[in-house]
């Protein structure tokens, strides 16, 4: 596996004229906002003409089938395993997708953001045992790579992993890696979608992949197309599928469009833009 390129635009500036935790009198003018949002944010400003070019999207899932016509070329693919000493091993993934689900998610992103770079990080498919640990290891690896957006159409219910995932989600948030995670539609506690530092997604029943709704009642923040979606599946074909799993990459794809046009926005800003262009707000 070739080394992944360094994080793209939007690196946090190094030298600050004042300490990070306080602001002296008269210093406000020295704050460099870098990428301020305009007074009016609409869909044309946010995503008009964007193809997601230059945006690095990670699909943390069951792998992605290489060369699938609905997915196209992958920018990279690794399989994550955790050895007996707890060390994370990220090896080039030659097996592709072990289930179909990761390919489906990648296809949804590709359809919305045709020029985004899609990386597959396989954390599932090798059996149930160790799936929680592998998920955490894969997310940590993805955050270390500085991906712009990480799609997580999966979750874990293991409470002991919840705290670690929470730290990772916060770390990603401050390092400008946006985590987009599927909400659970059953009354169970699962992570990381419940954390406020991620973008959580549920489903609506409409057919337009660009229609999405902001939800003011947490923990689900956005509803996107997730019912009877034609998705890519292993074997080069497609199937119709329903689940928050497929609504999540729709928001990932739209976030990639926003970042393609406005590189360097923070996850906080992207979430704000998503809210402002949601179909029930300003979109």
């Amino acid at each position: 596996m070739a080394a992944l390129p360094p994080p793209g635009a939007g690196a946090v500036s190094e030298a600050k004229p004042f300490p990070a935790w306080s602001l002296p009198r008269d210093a406000a003018a020295t704050i460099d906002l870098a990428n301020p949002l305009p007074e009016r944010v609409d869909r044309d400003w946010a995503i008009g003409g964007s193809t997601g070019a230059g945006v690095r999207v990670c699909i943390l899932d069951s792998g992605v089938e290489r060369g699938h016509p609905l997915v196209g070329e992958l920018a990279g693919a690794v399989a994550i395993t955790v050895d007996e000493d707890g060390e994370t091993i990220a090896a080039e993934d030659t097996e592709g997708d072990l289930c179909g689900h990761g390919t489906a998610c990648a296809g949804v992103v590709r359809a919305l953001a045709p020029d985004a770079e899609i990386f597959s990080v396989r954390v599932l498919g090798a059996g149930f045992k160790g799936s929680g640990r592998t998920l955490v290891a894969g997310l940590r690896w993805a955050v270390d790579q500085g991906f712009d957006v990480v799609n997580m159409s999966l979750s874990t219910t293991k409470r002991e992993l919840g705290d670690i995932l929470h730290e990772l989600a916060d770390s990603a948030y401050f390092r400008r890696t946006m985590l987009v995670a599927s909400a659970h539609n059953m009354p169970v506690e699962s992570y990381p979608w419940r954390f406020s530092s991620v973008v959580s997604v549920g489903s609506h029943e409409e057919d337009d992949p660009l229609v999405f709704y902001a939800n003011p009642d947490p923990p689900v923040e956005f509803f996107a197309r997730g019912v009877d979606v034609e998705v890519a599946w292993i074997g080069g074909g497609s199937i119709r599928a329903t689940g928050n799993s497929f609504a999540t990459p729709a928001i990932t794809g739209i976030a990639a469009l926003v970042l393609g046009k406005h590189p360097g926005l923070t996850p906080f800003q992207v979430k704000t833009v998503l809210y402002l262009i949601a179909s029930n707000v300003g979109g």
Binding site: L124, W233, I239, A241
Partner: peptide
């Protein structure tokens, strides 16, 4: 197996294509 590992429900149609 996937559904259990990923803790997420799925509805699939046309699975014979797989």
């Amino acid at each position: 197996g996937w559904v259990l590992s990923a803790r997420t429900p799925l509805v699939l149609e046309d699975v014979r294509n797989d």
